[in-house]
Nucleic acid binder design. Structure first.
Length: 494
RNA sequence: GCCCCCAUAGUCUAGUGGCCCAGGACGUCACCCUUUCAAGGUGAAGAUCGCGGGUUCGAAUCCCGCUGGGGGUACCA
Protein backbone atom coordinates (compact mmCIF):
# COMPACT_ATOMS: atom_id res chain seq x y z
CA UNK A 1 0.00 0.00 0.00
CA UNK A 2 1.08 3.52 -0.61
CA UNK A 3 0.97 6.07 2.16
CA UNK A 4 -1.42 8.91 1.49
CA UNK A 5 0.11 12.25 0.53
CA UNK A 6 -0.10 14.61 3.44
CA UNK A 7 1.78 17.90 3.56
CA UNK A 8 1.64 20.88 5.84
CA UNK A 9 2.44 24.54 6.01
CA UNK A 10 3.53 25.45 9.51
CA UNK A 11 4.19 29.16 9.94
CA UNK A 12 5.00 30.86 13.20
CA UNK A 13 2.91 33.89 14.08
CA UNK A 14 5.73 36.38 14.51
CA UNK A 15 4.37 38.99 12.12
CA UNK A 16 2.60 39.32 8.82
CA UNK A 17 2.99 36.59 6.24
CA UNK A 18 5.24 37.73 3.43
CA UNK A 19 5.06 36.45 -0.11
CA UNK A 20 8.00 34.12 0.41
CA UNK A 21 5.97 32.30 3.01
CA UNK A 22 2.94 32.27 0.76
CA UNK A 23 5.05 30.74 -1.99
CA UNK A 24 6.17 27.91 0.32
CA UNK A 25 2.55 27.36 1.34
CA UNK A 26 1.56 27.40 -2.32
CA UNK A 27 4.04 24.69 -3.30
CA UNK A 28 2.79 22.50 -0.49
CA UNK A 29 -0.79 23.13 -1.49
CA UNK A 30 -0.11 22.46 -5.18
CA UNK A 31 1.66 19.24 -4.30
CA UNK A 32 -1.30 18.09 -2.21
CA UNK A 33 -3.89 19.08 -4.78
CA UNK A 34 -1.93 17.58 -7.65
CA UNK A 35 -1.82 14.18 -5.98
CA UNK A 36 -5.22 14.42 -4.35
CA UNK A 37 -3.57 14.50 -0.93
CA UNK A 38 -4.23 16.62 2.13
CA UNK A 39 -2.91 20.05 2.98
CA UNK A 40 -2.66 20.76 6.68
CA UNK A 41 -2.17 24.14 8.30
CA UNK A 42 -0.48 24.22 11.67
CA UNK A 43 0.48 27.20 13.79
CA UNK A 44 3.89 26.93 15.39
CA UNK A 45 3.78 29.37 18.25
CA UNK A 46 6.34 27.86 20.59
CA UNK A 47 8.27 31.12 20.71
CA UNK A 48 6.58 32.99 23.52
CA UNK A 49 8.87 35.98 23.07
CA UNK A 50 8.25 36.73 19.44
CA UNK A 51 4.53 36.04 19.38
CA UNK A 52 2.47 38.73 17.63
CA UNK A 53 -1.20 38.87 18.54
CA UNK A 54 -2.88 39.49 15.19
CA UNK A 55 -0.44 37.43 13.19
CA UNK A 56 -2.61 34.32 12.98
CA UNK A 57 -5.62 36.25 11.71
CA UNK A 58 -3.46 37.96 9.11
CA UNK A 59 -1.90 34.69 8.12
CA UNK A 60 -5.21 32.92 7.54
CA UNK A 61 -6.52 35.91 5.60
CA UNK A 62 -3.43 35.97 3.40
CA UNK A 63 -3.74 32.31 2.52
CA UNK A 64 -7.45 32.58 1.84
CA UNK A 65 -6.93 35.65 -0.31
CA UNK A 66 -4.63 33.85 -2.71
CA UNK A 67 -6.91 30.84 -2.77
CA UNK A 68 -5.09 28.37 -0.56
CA UNK A 69 -7.53 26.36 1.53
CA UNK A 70 -6.62 23.76 4.13
CA UNK A 71 -8.13 20.35 4.79
CA UNK A 72 -7.16 20.39 8.44
CA UNK A 73 -6.10 23.27 10.61
CA UNK A 74 -7.23 26.31 12.57
CA UNK A 75 -10.90 27.26 12.20
CA UNK A 76 -11.41 24.01 10.35
CA UNK A 77 -10.40 21.32 12.78
CA UNK A 78 -9.56 17.77 11.83
CA UNK A 79 -8.66 14.37 13.26
CA UNK A 80 -5.42 15.67 14.74
CA UNK A 81 -6.76 18.79 16.41
CA UNK A 82 -5.71 21.05 17.91
CA UNK A 83 -3.51 22.52 15.17
CA UNK A 84 -1.87 25.17 17.32
CA UNK A 85 1.28 24.08 19.08
CA UNK A 86 0.80 26.08 22.26
CA UNK A 87 -2.52 24.29 22.69
CA UNK A 88 -0.92 20.96 21.96
CA UNK A 89 1.75 21.72 24.51
CA UNK A 90 -0.91 22.55 27.09
CA UNK A 91 -2.39 19.14 26.40
CA UNK A 92 0.94 17.54 27.29
CA UNK A 93 1.43 16.01 23.88
CA UNK A 94 5.18 16.60 23.70
CA UNK A 95 6.39 15.74 27.16
CA UNK A 96 5.99 11.97 26.86
CA UNK A 97 8.34 11.87 23.90
CA UNK A 98 10.95 13.87 25.77
CA UNK A 99 10.74 11.34 28.58
CA UNK A 100 11.11 8.55 26.07
CA UNK A 101 14.25 10.13 24.61
CA UNK A 102 15.64 10.67 28.09
CA UNK A 103 14.89 7.10 29.11
CA UNK A 104 16.60 5.69 26.04
CA UNK A 105 19.66 7.88 26.47
CA UNK A 106 19.06 9.83 23.27
CA UNK A 107 18.71 13.07 25.15
CA UNK A 108 19.96 14.50 28.41
CA UNK A 109 19.14 17.20 30.88
CA UNK A 110 21.53 20.08 30.72
CA UNK A 111 21.94 22.35 33.70
CA UNK A 112 24.25 24.80 32.01
CA UNK A 113 22.75 28.27 32.35
CA UNK A 114 22.60 30.91 29.66
CA UNK A 115 25.34 32.86 31.36
CA UNK A 116 27.62 29.85 31.53
CA UNK A 117 26.88 29.11 27.91
CA UNK A 118 27.87 32.63 26.95
CA UNK A 119 31.10 32.30 28.87
CA UNK A 120 31.92 28.98 27.22
CA UNK A 121 31.26 30.50 23.84
CA UNK A 122 33.51 33.48 24.58
CA UNK A 123 36.22 31.20 25.91
CA UNK A 124 36.15 29.03 22.84
CA UNK A 125 36.40 32.14 20.70
CA UNK A 126 39.34 33.41 22.74
CA UNK A 127 41.15 30.11 22.37
CA UNK A 128 40.83 30.62 18.61
CA UNK A 129 38.53 27.66 18.16
CA UNK A 130 37.09 27.64 14.67
CA UNK A 131 33.58 27.17 15.89
CA UNK A 132 31.72 26.47 19.07
CA UNK A 133 29.71 23.26 19.04
CA UNK A 134 28.06 22.74 22.37
CA UNK A 135 28.29 19.28 23.87
CA UNK A 136 27.08 19.33 27.44
CA UNK A 137 29.22 17.87 30.20
CA UNK A 138 26.01 16.15 31.37
CA UNK A 139 26.19 13.80 28.36
CA UNK A 140 28.15 11.37 30.48
CA UNK A 141 26.70 12.04 33.87
CA UNK A 142 25.55 9.17 35.99
CA UNK A 143 21.90 9.03 37.06
CA UNK A 144 23.09 10.00 40.52
CA UNK A 145 24.75 13.18 39.28
CA UNK A 146 21.60 14.14 37.41
CA UNK A 147 19.46 13.43 40.44
CA UNK A 148 21.73 15.56 42.60
CA UNK A 149 21.46 18.52 40.26
CA UNK A 150 17.71 18.13 40.10
CA UNK A 151 17.50 17.93 43.88
CA UNK A 152 19.08 21.38 43.99
CA UNK A 153 16.16 22.60 41.94
CA UNK A 154 18.40 23.80 39.12
CA UNK A 155 16.59 24.74 35.91
CA UNK A 156 17.48 22.60 32.95
CA UNK A 157 16.97 22.19 29.24
CA UNK A 158 16.73 18.86 27.48
CA UNK A 159 19.24 18.45 24.69
CA UNK A 160 19.61 15.89 21.94
CA UNK A 161 22.63 13.68 22.41
CA UNK A 162 24.08 14.01 18.94
CA UNK A 163 26.69 11.39 18.00
CA UNK A 164 30.24 12.73 18.09
CA UNK A 165 31.31 10.78 15.05
CA UNK A 166 29.85 9.44 11.86
CA UNK A 167 27.79 11.01 9.11
CA UNK A 168 24.12 11.90 8.93
CA UNK A 169 22.51 11.86 5.49
CA UNK A 170 19.22 12.63 3.85
CA UNK A 171 17.82 13.12 0.39
CA UNK A 172 16.09 16.12 -1.06
CA UNK A 173 13.47 15.96 -3.79
CA UNK A 174 14.26 19.45 -5.04
CA UNK A 175 17.90 18.59 -5.49
CA UNK A 176 17.09 15.63 -7.68
CA UNK A 177 17.20 13.23 -4.75
CA UNK A 178 20.84 14.13 -4.14
CA UNK A 179 22.23 12.84 -0.92
CA UNK A 180 23.24 15.54 1.52
CA UNK A 181 25.85 14.39 4.01
CA UNK A 182 26.88 16.13 7.19
CA UNK A 183 29.57 15.12 9.65
CA UNK A 184 28.14 14.65 13.10
CA UNK A 185 31.27 16.31 14.42
CA UNK A 186 30.02 19.55 12.82
CA UNK A 187 26.76 19.33 14.73
CA UNK A 188 26.03 20.21 18.35
CA UNK A 189 23.59 19.14 21.01
CA UNK A 190 20.50 21.16 20.17
CA UNK A 191 17.96 22.12 22.79
CA UNK A 192 14.77 20.10 22.53
CA UNK A 193 12.95 21.42 25.56
CA UNK A 194 13.45 24.92 26.91
CA UNK A 195 13.88 25.44 30.64
CA UNK A 196 10.32 26.77 30.61
CA UNK A 197 9.22 23.31 29.59
CA UNK A 198 8.15 24.53 26.14
CA UNK A 199 9.43 22.40 23.29
CA UNK A 200 11.61 24.02 20.68
CA UNK A 201 10.69 24.02 16.99
CA UNK A 202 12.92 21.07 16.16
CA UNK A 203 11.11 18.81 18.59
CA UNK A 204 7.56 20.09 18.33
CA UNK A 205 7.30 20.20 14.55
CA UNK A 206 8.74 16.74 14.26
CA UNK A 207 6.40 15.15 16.76
CA UNK A 208 3.46 16.87 15.11
CA UNK A 209 4.56 15.84 11.64
CA UNK A 210 4.76 12.28 12.84
CA UNK A 211 1.46 12.34 14.70
CA UNK A 212 -0.26 14.03 11.79
CA UNK A 213 1.23 11.47 9.42
CA UNK A 214 2.93 14.01 7.21
CA UNK A 215 4.40 12.21 4.21
CA UNK A 216 6.41 15.05 2.66
CA UNK A 217 8.05 17.95 4.39
CA UNK A 218 8.19 20.80 1.90
CA UNK A 219 9.75 23.86 3.51
CA UNK A 220 12.16 26.72 2.88
CA UNK A 221 15.80 25.95 2.24
CA UNK A 222 16.84 27.73 5.43
CA UNK A 223 15.95 24.40 7.05
CA UNK A 224 18.52 22.37 5.17
CA UNK A 225 21.22 22.86 7.82
CA UNK A 226 18.98 21.62 10.61
CA UNK A 227 17.61 18.63 8.75
CA UNK A 228 20.40 16.34 10.06
CA UNK A 229 19.11 16.98 13.58
CA UNK A 230 15.66 16.00 12.44
CA UNK A 231 16.95 12.83 10.83
CA UNK A 232 18.75 11.96 14.05
CA UNK A 233 15.64 12.70 16.07
CA UNK A 234 13.42 10.51 13.92
CA UNK A 235 15.88 7.68 14.41
CA UNK A 236 16.06 8.28 18.16
CA UNK A 237 12.29 8.18 18.40
CA UNK A 238 12.22 5.06 16.25
CA UNK A 239 10.14 6.73 13.57
CA UNK A 240 10.43 6.80 9.81
CA UNK A 241 11.38 10.22 8.51
CA UNK A 242 9.20 11.85 5.87
CA UNK A 243 10.50 12.77 2.43
CA UNK A 244 12.18 16.17 2.40
CA UNK A 245 11.94 18.86 -0.24
CA UNK A 246 13.57 22.21 0.46
CA UNK A 247 12.32 24.94 -1.80
CA UNK A 248 14.60 27.87 -2.56
CA UNK A 249 14.13 31.19 -0.86
CA UNK A 250 12.95 34.25 -2.69
CA UNK A 251 15.75 36.77 -2.61
CA UNK A 252 15.45 40.51 -2.36
CA UNK A 253 15.30 42.47 -5.58
CA UNK A 254 18.94 43.42 -5.36
CA UNK A 255 19.84 39.83 -4.59
CA UNK A 256 21.33 40.80 -1.25
CA UNK A 257 19.75 38.37 1.12
CA UNK A 258 16.38 36.75 1.40
CA UNK A 259 13.18 38.71 1.59
CA UNK A 260 12.74 40.27 4.97
CA UNK A 261 9.60 41.38 6.68
CA UNK A 262 11.15 44.53 7.95
CA UNK A 263 13.08 45.80 4.97
CA UNK A 264 10.92 44.80 2.04
CA UNK A 265 7.45 45.79 1.02
CA UNK A 266 6.28 42.22 0.68
CA UNK A 267 3.53 41.73 3.23
CA UNK A 268 0.82 39.78 1.48
CA UNK A 269 -1.91 42.17 2.59
CA UNK A 270 -0.06 45.02 0.87
CA UNK A 271 -0.87 43.42 -2.45
CA UNK A 272 -4.58 43.31 -2.07
CA UNK A 273 -4.44 46.81 -0.69
CA UNK A 274 -2.76 47.96 -3.88
CA UNK A 275 -5.11 46.11 -6.14
CA UNK A 276 -3.37 42.94 -7.10
CA UNK A 277 -5.61 40.11 -8.21
CA UNK A 278 -5.15 36.92 -6.22
CA UNK A 279 -5.14 34.89 -9.43
CA UNK A 280 -2.24 36.99 -10.76
CA UNK A 281 -0.30 36.58 -7.54
CA UNK A 282 -1.02 32.87 -7.55
CA UNK A 283 0.30 32.54 -11.09
CA UNK A 284 3.36 34.69 -10.43
CA UNK A 285 4.29 32.91 -7.22
CA UNK A 286 3.91 29.50 -8.81
CA UNK A 287 6.55 30.60 -11.31
CA UNK A 288 9.04 31.65 -8.65
CA UNK A 289 11.18 28.57 -8.65
CA UNK A 290 8.94 26.37 -10.72
CA UNK A 291 8.17 26.28 -14.43
CA UNK A 292 6.06 24.15 -16.68
CA UNK A 293 7.95 24.31 -19.96
CA UNK A 294 9.97 26.71 -22.06
CA UNK A 295 7.18 29.15 -22.91
CA UNK A 296 3.96 28.74 -20.92
CA UNK A 297 3.47 31.36 -18.22
CA UNK A 298 -0.16 32.35 -17.98
CA UNK A 299 -2.02 29.42 -16.49
CA UNK A 300 -5.22 28.96 -14.53
CA UNK A 301 -5.22 27.48 -11.05
CA UNK A 302 -6.49 24.20 -12.45
CA UNK A 303 -3.76 24.06 -15.07
CA UNK A 304 -1.08 24.79 -12.49
CA UNK A 305 -2.41 22.07 -10.19
CA UNK A 306 -2.42 19.59 -13.06
CA UNK A 307 1.06 20.51 -14.21
CA UNK A 308 2.83 21.06 -10.90
CA UNK A 309 5.56 18.71 -9.85
CA UNK A 310 8.06 19.11 -7.06
CA UNK A 311 10.81 17.64 -9.22
CA UNK A 312 10.57 20.67 -11.48
CA UNK A 313 11.17 23.07 -8.63
CA UNK A 314 14.49 24.85 -9.05
CA UNK A 315 17.18 24.39 -6.41
CA UNK A 316 18.51 27.90 -6.96
CA UNK A 317 16.88 30.92 -5.34
CA UNK A 318 14.85 33.40 -7.38
CA UNK A 319 14.81 37.13 -6.95
CA UNK A 320 11.71 39.05 -6.12
CA UNK A 321 10.64 40.76 -9.35
CA UNK A 322 7.77 43.20 -8.76
CA UNK A 323 7.84 44.41 -12.39
CA UNK A 324 7.04 40.95 -13.63
CA UNK A 325 4.25 40.61 -11.09
CA UNK A 326 2.85 43.94 -12.16
CA UNK A 327 2.92 42.97 -15.81
CA UNK A 328 1.12 39.75 -14.98
CA UNK A 329 -1.44 41.61 -12.92
CA UNK A 330 -2.14 43.81 -15.94
CA UNK A 331 -2.70 40.73 -18.05
CA UNK A 332 -5.17 39.36 -15.52
CA UNK A 333 -6.97 42.67 -15.21
CA UNK A 334 -7.41 42.83 -18.97
CA UNK A 335 -9.02 39.41 -18.89
CA UNK A 336 -11.71 40.67 -16.55
CA UNK A 337 -15.06 41.88 -17.86
CA UNK A 338 -16.05 45.53 -17.49
CA UNK A 339 -18.49 44.60 -14.73
CA UNK A 340 -15.83 42.68 -12.84
CA UNK A 341 -13.38 45.57 -13.06
CA UNK A 342 -16.12 47.91 -11.88
CA UNK A 343 -16.77 45.78 -8.82
CA UNK A 344 -13.10 45.50 -8.02
CA UNK A 345 -12.20 49.18 -8.36
CA UNK A 346 -15.24 50.48 -6.48
CA UNK A 347 -13.60 49.98 -3.06
CA UNK A 348 -10.61 52.00 -4.23
CA UNK A 349 -12.83 54.80 -5.51
CA UNK A 350 -14.68 54.79 -2.22
CA UNK A 351 -11.47 54.99 -0.28
CA UNK A 352 -10.44 57.98 -2.40
CA UNK A 353 -13.88 59.45 -1.73
CA UNK A 354 -14.68 59.76 -5.41
CA UNK A 355 -17.90 57.83 -4.88
CA UNK A 356 -19.97 57.43 -1.76
CA UNK A 357 -20.14 54.53 0.65
CA UNK A 358 -22.29 52.64 0.06
CA UNK A 359 -22.16 53.38 -3.62
CA UNK A 360 -25.36 54.63 -5.26
CA UNK A 361 -26.76 52.87 -8.34
CA UNK A 362 -26.09 56.02 -10.37
CA UNK A 363 -22.46 56.10 -9.31
CA UNK A 364 -22.00 52.44 -10.04
CA UNK A 365 -23.48 52.86 -13.51
CA UNK A 366 -21.23 55.84 -14.16
CA UNK A 367 -18.12 53.94 -13.06
CA UNK A 368 -19.09 51.07 -15.29
CA UNK A 369 -19.31 53.55 -18.14
CA UNK A 370 -15.81 54.84 -17.33
CA UNK A 371 -14.09 51.47 -16.92
CA UNK A 372 -13.55 50.84 -20.65
CA UNK A 373 -11.53 54.07 -20.77
CA UNK A 374 -8.95 52.81 -18.31
CA UNK A 375 -9.29 49.05 -18.43
CA UNK A 376 -6.21 48.28 -20.50
CA UNK A 377 -4.23 50.98 -18.73
CA UNK A 378 -4.54 49.43 -15.31
CA UNK A 379 -1.72 47.38 -13.86
CA UNK A 380 -2.85 47.78 -10.28
CA UNK A 381 -6.49 48.37 -9.42
CA UNK A 382 -5.31 50.96 -6.93
CA UNK A 383 -4.34 53.20 -9.85
CA UNK A 384 -8.00 53.67 -10.77
CA UNK A 385 -8.76 56.68 -8.53
CA UNK A 386 -5.89 58.65 -9.97
CA UNK A 387 -6.84 57.71 -13.52
CA UNK A 388 -10.49 58.67 -13.02
CA UNK A 389 -10.10 61.55 -10.62
CA UNK A 390 -11.10 64.29 -13.10
CA UNK A 391 -14.45 62.66 -13.82
CA UNK A 392 -15.44 63.26 -10.24
CA UNK A 393 -13.62 66.42 -9.30
CA UNK A 394 -13.15 69.83 -10.86
CA UNK A 395 -9.90 70.45 -12.67
CA UNK A 396 -7.64 73.40 -12.24
CA UNK A 397 -4.60 74.70 -14.05
CA UNK A 398 -1.91 75.62 -11.59
CA UNK A 399 0.38 75.69 -14.59
CA UNK A 400 -1.52 77.21 -17.56
CA UNK A 401 1.36 76.48 -19.91
CA UNK A 402 0.32 72.81 -19.75
CA UNK A 403 -2.63 73.84 -21.86
CA UNK A 404 -0.45 75.02 -24.70
CA UNK A 405 0.40 72.25 -27.15
CA UNK A 406 3.69 71.97 -28.96
CA UNK A 407 4.37 74.61 -31.61
CA UNK A 408 1.56 76.79 -30.33
CA UNK A 409 1.30 79.81 -28.08
CA UNK A 410 -1.24 81.39 -25.77
CA UNK A 411 -3.33 83.24 -28.38
CA UNK A 412 -3.45 80.34 -30.85
CA UNK A 413 -4.37 77.88 -28.13
CA UNK A 414 -7.13 80.11 -26.83
CA UNK A 415 -8.37 80.56 -30.37
CA UNK A 416 -8.36 76.82 -31.00
CA UNK A 417 -10.30 76.14 -27.83
CA UNK A 418 -12.80 78.89 -28.64
CA UNK A 419 -13.33 77.39 -32.07
CA UNK A 420 -13.93 74.00 -30.53
CA UNK A 421 -16.38 75.43 -28.03
CA UNK A 422 -18.23 77.12 -30.83
CA UNK A 423 -18.60 73.84 -32.73
CA UNK A 424 -19.47 71.72 -29.73
CA UNK A 425 -21.97 74.01 -28.05
CA UNK A 426 -24.80 73.52 -30.53
CA UNK A 427 -24.42 69.74 -30.65
CA UNK A 428 -27.57 67.87 -29.71
CA UNK A 429 -25.92 64.48 -29.99
CA UNK A 430 -23.00 64.18 -27.54
CA UNK A 431 -21.87 60.76 -28.65
CA UNK A 432 -18.31 59.67 -29.18
CA UNK A 433 -18.88 59.32 -32.93
CA UNK A 434 -20.41 62.73 -33.38
CA UNK A 435 -17.72 64.35 -31.27
CA UNK A 436 -15.01 62.81 -33.36
CA UNK A 437 -16.73 63.80 -36.59
CA UNK A 438 -17.23 67.37 -35.43
CA UNK A 439 -13.72 67.91 -34.16
CA UNK A 440 -12.08 66.30 -37.17
CA UNK A 441 -14.11 68.56 -39.38
CA UNK A 442 -12.80 71.52 -37.41
CA UNK A 443 -9.23 70.34 -37.93
CA UNK A 444 -9.75 70.05 -41.66
CA UNK A 445 -11.01 73.61 -41.82
CA UNK A 446 -8.65 75.25 -39.35
CA UNK A 447 -5.42 73.80 -40.60
CA UNK A 448 -4.44 72.72 -37.09
CA UNK A 449 -2.77 69.39 -36.57
CA UNK A 450 -4.90 66.75 -34.79
CA UNK A 451 -2.41 66.52 -31.99
CA UNK A 452 -2.54 70.27 -31.38
CA UNK A 453 -6.28 70.64 -31.07
CA UNK A 454 -6.82 67.38 -29.24
CA UNK A 455 -4.01 68.06 -26.83
CA UNK A 456 -5.41 71.48 -25.89
CA UNK A 457 -8.88 70.06 -25.33
CA UNK A 458 -7.52 67.10 -23.39
CA UNK A 459 -5.70 69.29 -20.92
CA UNK A 460 -8.68 71.63 -20.68
CA UNK A 461 -11.12 68.91 -19.71
CA UNK A 462 -8.83 66.61 -17.70
CA UNK A 463 -6.23 68.95 -16.29
CA UNK A 464 -3.48 66.64 -17.47
CA UNK A 465 -1.50 65.83 -20.58
CA UNK A 466 -1.90 62.08 -20.28
CA UNK A 467 -5.45 60.81 -20.20
CA UNK A 468 -7.79 58.27 -21.77
CA UNK A 469 -8.87 58.68 -25.42
CA UNK A 470 -10.34 62.12 -25.99
CA UNK A 471 -13.72 61.52 -27.62
CA UNK A 472 -14.72 58.83 -25.18
CA UNK A 473 -13.62 61.07 -22.34
CA UNK A 474 -15.67 63.99 -23.64
CA UNK A 475 -18.66 61.72 -24.10
CA UNK A 476 -18.37 60.33 -20.58
CA UNK A 477 -17.85 63.75 -19.06
CA UNK A 478 -20.98 65.15 -20.69
CA UNK A 479 -21.61 68.23 -22.74
CA UNK A 480 -22.18 70.69 -19.95
CA UNK A 481 -19.11 69.84 -17.88
CA UNK A 482 -16.90 69.56 -20.95
CA UNK A 483 -17.84 72.97 -22.23
CA UNK A 484 -17.54 74.55 -18.80
CA UNK A 485 -14.02 73.25 -18.41
CA UNK A 486 -13.03 74.41 -21.88
CA UNK A 487 -14.36 77.89 -21.17
CA UNK A 488 -12.50 77.93 -17.85
CA UNK A 489 -9.33 76.96 -19.68
CA UNK A 490 -9.77 79.79 -22.16
CA UNK A 491 -10.30 82.14 -19.22
CA UNK A 492 -7.01 81.13 -17.57
CA UNK A 493 -5.20 81.73 -20.83
CA UNK A 494 -6.54 85.25 -21.15
C1' G B 1 35.66 31.62 10.83
C1' C B 2 33.09 26.86 10.37
C1' C B 3 29.09 23.82 8.02
C1' C B 4 25.45 23.31 4.08
C1' C B 5 23.11 24.71 -0.54
C1' C B 6 23.25 27.10 -5.30
C1' A B 7 25.44 29.01 -10.14
C1' U B 8 22.18 29.86 -18.35
C1' A B 9 21.35 37.64 -20.66
C1' G B 10 19.83 43.23 -15.71
C1' U B 11 15.68 39.67 -13.78
C1' C B 12 12.57 34.93 -13.95
C1' U B 13 13.43 30.64 -16.64
C1' A B 14 13.73 26.25 -20.95
C1' G B 15 17.59 22.92 -21.49
C1' U B 16 19.38 16.27 -17.94
C1' G B 17 25.76 14.45 -23.75
C1' G B 18 24.73 15.67 -30.37
C1' C B 19 17.91 18.79 -32.38
C1' C B 20 21.56 24.83 -28.81
C1' C B 21 27.23 29.34 -32.31
C1' A B 22 21.25 28.31 -26.44
C1' G B 23 14.35 28.84 -26.70
C1' G B 24 10.37 31.79 -23.89
C1' A B 25 8.95 35.89 -20.53
C1' C B 26 9.79 40.66 -17.70
C1' G B 27 12.63 44.96 -18.38
C1' U B 28 15.25 48.12 -22.24
C1' C B 29 15.38 50.23 -27.31
C1' A B 30 13.29 50.99 -32.34
C1' C B 31 9.37 50.86 -35.79
C1' C B 32 4.00 50.15 -36.94
C1' C B 33 -0.98 51.48 -35.17
C1' U B 34 -2.35 56.26 -33.02
C1' U B 35 -5.02 62.73 -30.51
C1' U B 36 -1.61 61.72 -25.37
C1' C B 37 -0.81 57.37 -22.38
C1' A B 38 -1.64 52.40 -22.61
C1' A B 39 -2.89 47.88 -25.07
C1' G B 40 -1.68 45.29 -29.60
C1' G B 41 1.79 44.09 -33.73
C1' U B 42 6.85 43.73 -35.75
C1' G B 43 11.87 43.84 -34.81
C1' A B 44 16.58 44.72 -32.12
C1' A B 45 20.24 44.81 -28.46
C1' G B 46 21.53 41.71 -24.42
C1' A B 47 24.49 34.93 -22.31
C1' U B 48 32.37 33.56 -24.67
C1' C B 49 25.91 28.87 -20.54
C1' G B 50 30.68 32.29 -13.41
C1' C B 51 36.18 30.87 -14.13
C1' G B 52 39.91 26.96 -14.82
C1' G B 53 40.90 22.03 -15.54
C1' G B 54 39.38 17.18 -16.90
C1' U B 55 36.01 12.82 -19.07
C1' U B 56 34.10 12.17 -24.22
C1' C B 57 34.30 11.63 -31.27
C1' G B 58 31.10 15.50 -29.04
C1' A B 59 29.40 19.23 -22.72
C1' A B 60 25.30 24.51 -20.74
C1' U B 61 24.40 19.35 -19.68
C1' C B 62 29.11 14.38 -16.29
C1' C B 63 33.68 14.89 -12.68
C1' C B 64 37.32 18.00 -9.87
C1' G B 65 39.18 22.70 -8.20
C1' C B 66 38.40 27.86 -7.74
C1' U B 67 35.38 32.10 -7.47
C1' G B 68 30.84 34.33 -6.51
C1' G B 69 25.99 34.32 -4.26
C1' G B 70 22.61 32.46 -0.66
C1' G B 71 21.48 29.90 3.87
C1' G B 72 22.77 28.10 8.78
C1' U B 73 25.75 28.66 12.97
C1' A B 74 19.96 30.75 19.45
C1' C B 75 16.53 27.97 25.65
C1' C B 76 13.85 32.01 17.14
C1' A B 77 11.22 29.67 13.79
Amino acid sequence: MTTPIRVRFAPSPTGFLHIGGVRTALFNWLFARHYGGSFILRIEDTDEKRYVADAVTDLLASLRWIGIDWDEGPEKGGPHAPYVQSERHALGIYRQYVDQLLAHGHAYKSFVSNEELERMRAEAMARGLKSFRFRGPERDWTPEQVAAAEAQGLPYTVRLKVPLEGVTSFQDLVRGGEQINVNNADLYDIVLLKSSGMPVYHLAHLIDDHLMQISHVIRGEEWVPSTPYHVLLYAALGWTAPIFAHVPNILRQDGRGKLSKRKDDVATNRFWERGYLPEAMFNYLALQGWSYDDHTEIMTRTEIIERFSIERVQPSPARWNPEKLQDMNGIYIRKLTVTEVTERILPFLQQAELVSTPVTPTERAYVEQLVPLIHERLEELGEAPDLLDFFFRDVSFPDPTLLIPKKMDTPTTAAALRAAIERLTPLTDWSEATLEQTLRALIAESGLKPGQLFSAIRVAITGRTVAPPLFATLAALGQQRSLERMRAAVATLE
